[in-house]
Amino acid sequence: MADSGTRARILDATAELYRRQGMSATGLKQISSAAKAPFGSIYHHFPGGKEAISAEVIRGEGIRYGEFVGAQLADIDPIDGIPTLFEDAGKLLEAQDYTEACSIETIALEVASTNERLRREAAEVFEAWLTRLAEWFGQLDITEDQSRRLATITLTALEGAFVLCRTLRTVEPMTIAGYGVQTAVHAAVAQELSDP
């Protein structure tokens, strides 16, 4: 039992460090210290070292963020609720003093051109999120292609807004992005209504 607890602590500590400072800036000794785990336990639980830990962090964070956003989407109208979704993301970022971001985004930016295994892991997470968002937009009277496009616009706007908010230390980009996505949704619905 303690063994699985150590493994979980290593993953949790790694995910938090990646959210705060990225993957490249995070070393195994720092992970060991943050997890309050002996250094040797990292290789005991993750024989593949940092790459193996990172792959599991990507999968775990993908599920965690997916469930968090999914719960929010359940209570939000896909047209009128979009600005609220983005404003809530901005409030959370502001409450964390802009120190944490989506760990999948930070890892993907670092590995997209250098580590094919981790790039694929991040791509699978993003694809799952896009599928979930497209299903959510599927409530509207629009085509599957439009739902997928709106999902891509939403995820792109959200992830980009996280970067700008953290850099500029303001939630304004998140608020503006939310209204931009809402405009795209209105346009998609209007197009569908006007098509014969």
Rank of each mutant, 00 (worst) to 15 (best):
S103M: 03
A95S: 07
V57K: 01
T26R: 01
P196E: 15
P47R: 07
L93F: 04
V57H: 09
L193F: 08
R117H: 08
A34T: 14
Q139R: 15
A161H: 11
E56C: 07
R7F: 02
G62R: 08
W136T: 01
E16C: 07
T183V: 07
A89Q: 11
I10S: 04
S32H: 14
G40D: 06
G60V: 00
A71D: 13
L168H: 14
D75F: 15
T156S: 06
Q191N: 03
L140V: 08
E100I: 13
E144L: 09
G81T: 11
L93M: 15
G60T: 14
I31C: 11
L17A: 05
L73N: 12
F126V: 08
R119V: 06
L164F: 12
A123P: 00
F126R: 10
F46Q: 00
A25Q: 07
L133N: 00
L133V: 03
L158G: 05
I107Q: 02
T26D: 06
E192D: 11
I176P: 03
A108S: 13
P83L: 09
I63V: 04
W136K: 00
I104G: 00
A157I: 04
D88M: 15
L92T: 13
L11K: 07
F86V: 03
L193D: 12
A25L: 02
I58R: 10
P196A: 13
A123Q: 09
Y98F: 11
N115T: 10
A13P: 00
A128K: 09
A122N: 07
E105W: 07
A52H: 10
S4H: 01
R20V: 09
T183Y: 15
V181E: 08
T14Q: 06
D97T: 12
S32V: 08
W136Q: 02
G48Y: 07
H186S: 13
L168I: 13
S4G: 00
R169S: 06
L28Y: 05
G138W: 05
I63C: 03
Y98Q: 08
V111L: 01
A122S: 14
R149A: 10
E127P: 05
A134F: 04
T14S: 06
L73F: 08
I153Q: 11
Q30K: 13
D80E: 12
G49W: 12
P83A: 02
F137Y: 14
D75T: 14
I10T: 14
T14H: 01
T183R: 13
F86N: 06
L168K: 15
G90V: 08
G66N: 01
A25D: 01
A13C: 13
G5H: 05
A89R: 08
A151Q: 01
G60Q: 06
A71L: 15
R64C: 09
G160I: 03
